[in-house]
Design a protein around this nucleic acid. Structure first.
Lengths: 207, 207
DNA sequence: TCCGTTTTCAAACTATTGTTTGAATTGTCC
DNA sequence: GGACAATTCAAACAATAGTTTGAAAACGGA
């Protein structure tokens, strides 16, 4: 593995991640990618054996980055009260509302996949979703200590849904008729509101 | 307007609705539509002035059907207790988990749009979303009588998010590792669980 | 039945897609 | 520096996309 080839490979990955996040797999052409990465057409086939291969790599990187991003906070979450930990989790999930950083793009890529999962994604999910879901269910267990496995799983999905609806529909919610503000203070208020409702909701639920 | 032309027009609409719901706008070719509708290639351009025009019609019909589907229950909802009304609303939102009927397809079409809204959809949404969102906010007002407009709007979106995450990810949730059952009893249990958590969550929230 | 309109049809057209090609260039190691 | 592999490049390829075309068929009112 030589150095210069790694450069173009990285440029392709970077450009592809942004475009896949913005327009999805079908909406992104290899010509758009190579134009953005400023590399040659054939580079994608040379380095990734085609668009599919490139997408698989982007997906893997996104999944890895996202789980690491959450696992990094798993330790400190255990030191918090369950309410603080939940609020922190929700705040992290709402992050794409504010930032257009890497983690936000990763979440957006998975949003695309949630509508019509590609085979690549399905495989990846069944293999690597466990640790991420485990974080959410662990969190739920602190509120529902007596709940069975099914209830905990549903609670974890329920929690994710409360956040993802805002992330997913960001563009629409920002415009009329909702006009949801996406400034830092407003998002913080949103995170706290969702946290409060969620905590209350789980408060006395027997499961 | 003669009769036979209406027939092919309706066949195209029906086939297009199913395919758009299943594969989205980009994933559906006009050739696939005409094959399913068993009409000629040029029929779409003749009757709808192109794929865009057809999609706009499908979208309008879907939106209209969906709001009517909810508005039809608005009257009886007012006769229920707020808890019953909420449970009924949630049960209705979870309907696509069980049925593959028309309403389910309409919801799926909007799921596609929520990732990358087409201009057609944006326009339609800003014009006709008000009554549907009004239903949800009215429901929330019964739990949060003192809340301001912003809080009510957020609460309505929050409510929708709790349901849509299950509908949207139906396929994935049905498989491993979650293995969520999609039988009638299981979905009913799911609806009741979500209802309970939501009611508790809003229970003492000051807004 | 006849005429004018509406509707259907097979075929071709243009644009864009992902991929392949083979030569030219660059880099690496002896 | 020279030989070999790795990489880049412009161009072309095959497949598919949405749309257009012009003739044929079906229809409806006289």
């Amino acid at each position: 593995m030589t150095r210069p080839s790694e450069v173009t490979r990285e440029r392709i990955m970077k450009a592809a991640e942004r475009l896949f996040a913005e327009r999805g797999y079908d909406g992104t052409s290899v010509r758009a990618i190579v134009a953005r990465a400023r590399v040659n057409q054939a580079a994608i086939n040379y380095h990734f054996e085609g668009k599919d291969g490139l997408y698989r790599e982007v997906l893997r990187a996104a999944f890895q980055g996202l789980t690491e991003h959450q696992l990094a906070h798993a330790a400190e979450a255990r030191a918090m009260s369950r309410e603080e930990a939940l609020a922190a989790f929700i705040r992290r999930q709402l992050r794409p509302l504010l930032a257009r950083d890497e983690a936000s793009r990763h979440i957006r890529i998975f949003n695309w996949e949630s509508v019509r999962p590609t085979p690549v994604f399905r495989k990846l999910l069944s293999e690597e979703a466990a640790p991420f879901m485990g974080l959410a269910t662990d969190l739920m267990r602190r509120f529902l200590p007596d709940a069975d496995h099914r209830t905990l799983t549903v609670a974890a999905i329920w929690l994710l849904g409360q956040c993802s609806v805002f992330v997913r529909n960001r563009e629409q919610l920002a415009g009329p008729p909702v006009q949801l503000s996406l400034e830092e203070a407003a998002v913080e208020w949103l995170a706290q509101t969702i946290s409060r409702w969620t905590i209350l909701g789980l408060g006395r639920a027997a499961g």
